Simulated assay, not measured.
Amino acid sequence: MNSIKYIERASGEIKEETVPGKGMLKWLYSSATGKVALHLLVKRKIVSDLGGWYMDTKMSAKRIPGFIAEHHINIDEFQDAGNYKTFNQFFYRKLKPGARTIQEGLVSPADGKILVFPSLNDVRSFFIKGSEFSLDEFLLNKELAQKYKDGAMAIVRLAPPDYHRYHFPAAGKASESIKIKGHYYSVSPLALQKNLEIFCRNQREYCTLTTEDFGKIIIVDVGATMVGSIIQTYQTGQVKKGDEKGYFAFGGSTLVLLFKKDKIKFDADLIKNTREGLETSIAMGEQIASN
C-alpha cells in the first residue's frame, strides 16, 4: 500500500499524512490472513462497540496527551481543553466560538481531506480499476439515485486526529436523517485504494438540505472502523450555513455531499488536485464551491 499524500491548501505543498494503525490497515487489506480477519471480525459492529466502550472509560483519558503531541493538534482552538474525562470527550471536542471562519459560497462541512468530482463519471478515474461506486447501492433508493446520477460529488475524509463535529455547508431546510445499516470497514485511503465499495457497505445516514443557491444537497455521514456512533445534533427545518449537524464518536469517518447536475462549480484548485490523484486539506467553513 502506498503512503497517504495530500496537498496542503494554504501552501500548495505536498505533505504525507501520519496514519494511526497504518501497519494494521496494511495487514487487513493486503494480506490473505488479514482479509479473513477483516471479514470475520473487524468489520462487525461488536468490535467498534467495544472500541467505543473503552474510549468512554476514564482509563482511556491517559491516551490524550500523547495523541495531541503525536499529531500536533492545536488544543487551544477547543473548548474544555485539559478537562476531558475520557478519550471520546476529547475526540468529539467542540471548537471555541470564532475558531473557524465561515466563508462565502458552499463551504466544507468538516475539517479533513477533500476530493471533488464535477461529474460522478470522474470517480472511476480516481480510484483503482475494479473499485466501483454505485449510487443506487450507496443510497439504497433508486428513485433518489436517479436524480443525482449525472451530478457532482465531494468526499470529505476525517482522520482520527481531526475535529470530528460536522456542519451544514449552506443555509437551507434540512430533512430528517435516514439510517442505512452496514458494516464498519476503514475509510482510510489505504483501504479505499483496494475497494471503493466500502462506502456502499458501511453504516451511514443521510439527509437532504434544500438550498436556494445549490439546489437539493444530499449529505451522507459514513461511519467506519471504531466509529461507535453517528450522533445527529441538528433539528429538522431551517438551518444556517455553519450550524452543527452532528458528530462522530471515536474513529475515522467520512462525509459525502451529492449535488444535482449543474448546481455547483467546485473551486479550481480542488478539481486540479483531485485529477492529479491527491486529496486537499480543508477546514470546516472554508469555501469549496460556488454556484
Rank of each mutant, 00 (worst) to 15 (best):
N2S: 07
S3A: 12
I7S: 05
K15S: 02
K15D: 04
G21K: 13
G23K: 10
M24D: 08
L28Q: 09
S31Q: 15
G34I: 10
A37D: 05
A37N: 07
V42I: 14
R44L: 09
K45N: 11
T57N: 05
K58L: 12
S60L: 10
K62F: 13
K62S: 15
I68T: 13
A69C: 03
E70A: 15
H71M: 09
I73C: 11
I75D: 14
D76T: 12
K85Y: 00
Y92V: 09
L95Q: 14
S108G: 06
P109I: 07
P109E: 10
G112K: 06
I114D: 02
V116N: 04
L120M: 11
D122F: 07
F127R: 08
I128L: 15
K129G: 06
E132Q: 11
F133R: 01
F133W: 08
F133I: 02
Y148E: 06
K149C: 11
K149Q: 15
G151L: 03
A154Y: 01
V156L: 15
A159V: 09
P160G: 01
H164T: 05
Y166C: 04
H167E: 04
F168K: 06
F168N: 00
A170R: 01
A171Q: 07
A171E: 13
K173H: 08
A174G: 01
S177K: 13
S177E: 14
I178T: 15
H183R: 02
V187P: 04
S188G: 03
P189Y: 01
K194G: 13
E197A: 13
I198W: 04
I198R: 02
R201D: 09
N202L: 02
N202M: 01
Q203M: 12
I217Y: 01
V220K: 06
I230W: 05
T233R: 11
G242R: 08
Y247H: 14
T254E: 07
L257H: 07
E276A: 14
E276D: 15
L278E: 05
E279D: 06
E279G: 05
